[in-house]
Structures are given as C-alpha cells and as structure tokens.
C-alpha cells in the first residue's frame, strides 16, 4: 500500500538551490521525471473530488483496480472532497501535466453546477485535457408506489398540490426536475436534500411525492416495488429499465445525465496521453470493469476526449439557455 509518488508541492519551494533534494526525494530510484520512454514509471494518482464511498469514488476505484495490469503501475485514488469537486479539479489542473496526476470528472460539475456558483468557483474544461469518457449515469424520476403515479401526466394532474425532492442545489437532479416541471407546467414545492439517498428515503416514506435521483440509487427500491419509476432523463432508455420512457419520448426536451470522464492537466506530451488512452481503454475492456458498470447500472460512454469536451460544452450552453429562457431559478449566487 505504499505510495511512493512525488509529494504535492515540495518542488516549488525547494526549487531554488534545493532542487537536487527534491529530485532525490521525489523520484527515488527511477529519477522520476515525467514523459519520456518510461511512462508510466511510477504510480499515477487519480484524484476524486467526492467522498470515499460515493458513486464517483466507486468508479475511480474500479478503474484503479485494473491499472496495475494495464499500465504496469498502481493507481492510488485520492479523495479530496470540497465544493462539490471544484477544489479537487482546480488542484489537479494546477499540477504539472506529467501524466501522474489524473482526475475523475463529473459532467454535472461543469454543465450544471457552473450555473449556480460564482465565477471563481465555476469549473471549466479549459485547463484540463480529457483522456476518455467513461460512462453515463442516468437520472430517474421516481414516485412512492402509494401515489399511483406512473407517468408524467399523472404527476401533472396533481400540479400545485405536490412536493418533490432533489439531490440539492446545482445538481443534475435539480436541473432535470425543474426543467421537466417547467415544460410540463407542473407546480409544486421543491424540497432540496443533501444528496440522492435522503431524497430517496423521503419518497419511500411519503414525505415528498416524487424525487429525481440516480438510477443506481433507485434500482433496489424499484425492484422491491416500493417506488415506481416515471421517467428517465436521458436521450436513450436505460438498458436495465427498458420499460421506462425517456423524457424526450414523453415530449420534453430535458437531456440531463451524469457523465464521467478521466482528465489530466492541459499540456501533457502526446505520448503520455496516448499511453493513458491505451491503458485506460484496456481497463475499460476488461470483464471486471464491464461487470462493474453493469452492477452499478452505468451505461458505457467510452468516447474520445474531444467528444467529451464537445458534448459537455454543448450541454452546458444548452442548460444555460433553457434556464434563462424559462426563467428557472436554480438558486445560487451566479448570475
């Protein structure tokens, strides 16, 4: 379990005169400089901006599992929770693009949260290079089985006399639900929770009528029949819930999903990026990883870095437009 990779920032401080100390300390036997033929020569840190145990963290750890085999080095996962992942992302973006510092990105941090937070907190992809997309985690609107809601129309029928839970301000859950309700003309009381789990609990206990959460969170309860799925916010159906229509099919243009991708600081040598693309691609192809996706109801979305950047930027613009056009209040200090 040792983690001999270079410490965070000592080099900066000892740069004047102490560089040799830094190098010895840092590189150990490998002389540890980045790039070069030897990449990767030492463990690659994968920073996660969420707490250990969350779905993002699980994905990171599933990736890291396969690292030794695919890349020949270990991939310690480092949790650096804070500001919904903004701190970790910024931290990684500031690192040297040597390929030893990666981060696992959540798309909603860039596409949704940025609508809510102030300029300096907003995370963009500008200082990062995306290596590859990983998967898509769908949002689903669910209702307590006792409500008898089966479709968006059922929910709309009770408009005005409705309370709905979200996973919090600036989350995809909130955006999806607000956009849908706006388009469908449903009115109700928005009750934000800290995350998906308490929102789900509230639906199960009948504290709120409906809530939008991630499929992985909802699945066990859907199978147990305590809650009913209503609609999925994605452009295609989820393979594990083939019967549940997408919002699009129901006539609402609300494509919200949680995409995840691996990125590194901008400006890494092409060989490094290529090694990473190949290595991670190899991990994604393993049976273990695919099984992991399956068990967690994730849909593989293993597209190239360029596509990820394009898609996320497009979504961010689209959301911003929708929010403005419809005068939706996500809250927050952003404009």
């Amino acid at each position: 379990m040792s983690r001999p990779s270079c410490s965070r920032r000592p080099l900066i401080a000892v740069a004047a005169g102490g560089l040799s100390v830094g190098l010895v300390a840092c590189g150990g036997v490998t002389d540890g400089t980045a790039g070069g033929d030897g990449y990767p020569a030492e463990p690659i840190t994968l920073t996660v901006g969420q707490d250990a145990g969350g779905s993002t963290d699980l994905i990171a750890r599933a990736l890291a599992e396969g690292s030794q085999e695919a890349l020949g080095v270990s991939m310690p996962v480092e949790n650096q929770p804070g500001a919904n992942g903004a701190i970790a992302t910024q931290e990684v973006a500031d690192q040297d693009p040597d390929g030893y510092e990666l981060t696992l990105l959540n798309s909603t941090l860039i596409t949704v949260t940025s609508q809510v937070v102030s300029e300096e907190e907003a995370v963009t992809l500008d200082e990062l290079d995306v290596i590859t997309g990983l998967s898509r985690d769908d949002y689903i609107m669910v209702a307590n089985a006792d409500t008898g809601y089966g479709t968006v129309d059922d929910v709309a029928a009770d408009s005005g006399d409705l309370s709905y839970g979200t996973a919090g301000v600036g989350t995809g859950s909130q955006l999806a639900q607000l956009l849908l309700f706006d388009e469908a003309g449903i009115e109700g009381n928005e009750v934000p929770f800290d995350s998906g789990a308490p929102a789900l609990t509230a639906v199960m206990g009948g504290q709120v009528d409906v809530a939008t959460i991630q499929v992985g969170e909802a699945m066990p309860q859907i199978e147990a029949g305590t809650i009913d799925p209503i609609v999925i916010f994605s452009d295609e159906r989820n393979q594990h819930l083939e019967d549940v229509p997408t919002a699009q099919e129901e006539g609402y243009e609300v494509p919200v999903a949680q995409y995840r991708a691996v990125a590194l600081p901008e400006g890494a040598p092409e060989e490094v990026k290529q090694s990473l693309r190949e290595g991670i691609g190899e991990i994604l192809a393993t049976e273990e990883y695919q099984q992991f996706n399956d068990e967690n109801y994730l849909t593989p979305e293993e597209v190239s870095g360029e596509e990820v950047e394009e898609q996320w930027t497009e979504l961010a613009d689209q959301y911003e437009q929708s929010v403005q056009d419809n005068g939706i209040d996500l809250g927050g200090t952003g404009e």
Partner: peptide
C-alpha cells in the same frame, strides 16, 4: 501515515 496508511500527506521523503 505515508507508508502504512498511504495517506497523501505533503512530504519531502
């Protein structure tokens, strides 16, 4: 912390 627990403490050695 560094070796036993693999905690990423900022370190020199």
């Amino acid at each position: 912390f560094v070796h036993g627990l693999a905690v990423p403490v900022p370190r020199l050695f």
